[in-house]
Design a protein around this nucleic acid. Sequence first.
DNA 1: GGAATAACCTACCGGCGAGTAAGATATCAA
DNA 2: TTGATATCTTACTCGCCGGTAGGTTATTCC
Lengths: 228, 228
Amino acid sequence: MPRQSAALQPHRRLFADRRRNPDGKRDAVLHTAVRMFLERSYARTSMNDVATQLSITKPALYHYFRNKEEILVEIYRLGTDLIDEMLDGIEAEQRPGLDKVADFVSGYIRIVAGDFGRAVIRLDDGELSKAGRKVVRGRKREIDHRLRALIEGGMKDGSIALCDAKIAAFLLAGAIHGMASWYEPSGPMKLEAITQEYVRMLTSGLATGDMAGSAGVRAFEAENRIHG
Amino acid sequence: MPRQSAALQPHRRLFADRRRNPDGKRDAVLHTAVRMFLERSYARTSMNDVATQLSITKPALYHYFRNKEEILVEIYRLGTDLIDEMLDGIEAEQRPGLDKVADFVSGYIRIVAGDFGRAVIRLDDGELSKAGRKVVRGRKREIDHRLRALIEGGMKDGSIALCDAKIAAFLLAGAIHGMASWYEPSGPMKLEAITQEYVRMLTSGLATGDMAGSAGVRAFEAENRIHG
DNA sequence: GGAATAACCTACCGGCGAGTAAGATATCAA
DNA sequence: TTGATATCTTACTCGCCGGTAGGTTATTCC
């Protein structure tokens, strides 16, 4: 029995009449599907479930998507696009690598707090066909490589202690991915508190010797305008 | 088509004749199942798949397990038992909290490098029935609480900087869980190198001010007998 | 050797879920 | 208004999977 969160009602209403609005309705399907996939997993959410949630029938869905997999791939695309855009911004910065990493952590957390960001992490791309899996995994790998490059840049400019960038990138991403698994937007934990702890702990784990942590904290405080 | 790794052959051979060995065979089913579940997920691995891998037929499996879920629950039990034992050892130590956390990180990584440890993290307990899910989630929650207590102990004895223990525990566990998702025992990355980086980065993120990182590194080096 | 029985197999059931065929109905552009 | 078309529905197919019924074969213990 699909829970009907209040946030889903607007999408349901879009389908109340037959007014033509293909893009809007396609979008509504995506937003509804991603929430259901996050709550009950892709495999355990049937096309019928999604359709019912929107007050339509299953075959109607096939007017907007060729098959179930296309929905999932589209969700991944929207999610990875968000991450790519964030990375574009960070790479354009002229700042020490450690500060860029701090920005990555807070930016990634912000994205992962949203449905499509969380979907990239939580949904199992093993459900995809070989072709779809190849596309999605390629996008994920690219993100990982860009994070790795940020860390390597920090080691070059001396703001990050020498370490194995590959492992460090995995650790950073993994810590935030973990968060995506337990974080619920409607839950009790404040996103800002989580972000602050994450930035502090993760950057001090990277920073060069004596100034451990302070650069990351400064970067976070600057970006989020926390009292001097 | 299930890949047939060399490690699975011994279990297959156990079923070559009809010699009576219920415990051994039950164990063989578990070891085969956990590997297949890790490779292709619980849902996408059918009872037929598992049976075929062992060169028997599906109904034969039902001599050793009442149903598919019982296999999964048993796998979780074996995995969480390993973690519980490790925590028992750490809690018995008379050392600063930060060192205990360092031991937790390296111990957890060691467990997660094994099949049953990895299964606790990677397999989706959402596949379980309500009853089974309650048991498994209870065990996971208990582990989280014990880690949280370690961190709180470290804050009391001054080895760990004041922070939100709940968030810190999530971050620590999350980083290692992330590792469980990409780590493959047969892969190229050396477990010791991973452990070293993880302990260093995660403990320096927790440590009190000036000595950031050194306590964790010392703890790791002592335990693993790395040159003075 | 010969019951007793564990171990295993063939053949099946019921249900579910993705996807489709074919037709009905509302919308829109002219 | 009206034809063209997008939208949506009812009713279905097909394949897979968990689980079982009921019988067969090998092992074990006396």
